[in-house]
Structure formats: C-alpha cells, structure tokens
C-alpha cells in the first residue's frame, strides 16, 4: 500500500509537471503583457532605467515564486502588489541612505476652492501640447507626485484596475485609494497647467 501511495505521488507529480507547462506559458504571456508598463512605473518611481529593470526583475521573481500557482484571474492585482512592495522598499532604502529628495507629501493642502473650480471651456492641461512636449511634462508631473498618489494614478487610470484591485495592489483600503487618486489628479492638473 505504501509503495502504491509513493508511486501515485510520483505519478501525480509528473502530471502536475505537465500542467505546469501550460501554467508557465500562461505566466509568460501575462508577464509579457505587463512588463513594459511595470518598467515605466518603476522608472517613474526611481528615475533610473537600470534601477527600474532590477526592480521589475525582482518583482517577477517574487510574483512567480509566491503567486504563480494562483488562478490567472488573480494575477494582475497580485503582480502589481509585488511591484508596489518593491517600489516601497526602494523608497525606504533611499530614505535611509539620506538620498530622499523632497516631494509633496500626502497631507491635505489648503487649496483655493476658486482656483480649483472647473472651467467648462478649458480643454485640459495636456490639450495644447505636442506629443513630445506633453510626454516630458507628464513624466515630470508624475515624478513629482508622492509614491502612493502616483501608484494610485497609474494603477487606476493607466493599468485600469478597479478600486478593489487597486487596494489589493497597494495594500490599503478602498477609501485610501480614492483619496490618493483624487489628490493625484489635483496635483497632476496643477503641475501640468503650470508647465503650459
């Protein structure tokens, strides 16, 4: 009986290995689909392509190791969660090394409600810029955001995660996601309008 159990376990392992081939292909397709955006996200956070590549590679390893066996539908928020964790760690290390540059904090600012009042005639802060100029301005504005606001903006607006998935990725409440995003939109608008 014990021998049969051992052989069945080995057989089961070989079957699992065959299934792992399909899983590897799915993982490969998933990572291929997100890697470029992940790199840009990390680049905006670090300001360095080399550091961004290292962080993305680290995130891929962590994701595959910890979440590769999860259902494919769960992968997007989990991958971004791993990358977000790596970005947070990177920022913490920078802070410890004393290379932390000043960024606007997440605290509420005394915003002038008149200045923030919508103007229906205004086409938007990026509308009057050419693509090249707009890209540079957007990059600068995104880099100027605090990490959490930038992550909320990129995950929610660019990556298209819903509030719940973004809260999983950022390990915070859904209310915090909405707050970070609202502040990110206000700060981005202000930065881009100033750039014009």
């Amino acid at each position: 009986m014990a021998a049969a159990i051992c052989l069945m376990a080995a057989f089961d392992e070989s079957r699992r290995e065959l299934g792992a081939g399909d899983e590897s292909r799915s993982l490969d397709a998933f990572l291929r689909g997100v890697e470029r955006r992940a790199l840009r996200m990390a680049e905006l956070a670090t300001g360095s392509r080399d550091e961004a590549l290292d962080l993305v590679q680290d995130a891929m390893f962590g994701f595959v190791r910890h979440y590769g066996g999860h259902d494919g539908a769960e992968w997007p928020p989990l991958f971004w969660r791993v990358l977000d964790s790596r970005l947070n760690d990177w920022h913490r290390r920078q802070k410890v090394r004393g290379r932390w540059s000043f960024r606007p904090d997440d605290k509420d600012t005394d915003e002038d409600p008149i200045a923030l009042a919508p103007d229906a005639r205004e086409p938007g802060p990026l509308a009057r810029m050419a693509d090249g100029e707009a890209t540079v301005a957007l990059d600068a504005a995104l880099r100027g955001l605090p990490l959490r606001q930038r992550q909320a903006f990129l995950l929610r607006i660019w990556e298209g995660l819903d509030v719940a998935a973004t809260s999983v990725a950022m390990r915070c409440s859904e209310g915090s996601v909405k707050t970070h995003l609202s502040r990110a939109l206000a700060n981005l608008r202000r930065a881009l309008e100033a750039h014009r």
Partner: peptide
C-alpha cells in the same frame, strides 16, 4: 526584460 522574465519563469519550471 525578456531575460528577466525567462529567468523568473525558469525558477518555476
């Protein structure tokens, strides 16, 4: 990026 992805997947294979 491709090398990073393949290396990550190799750990699972």
């Amino acid at each position: 990026l491709n090398r990073a992805r393949q290396a990550a997947l190799a750990t699972r294979r």
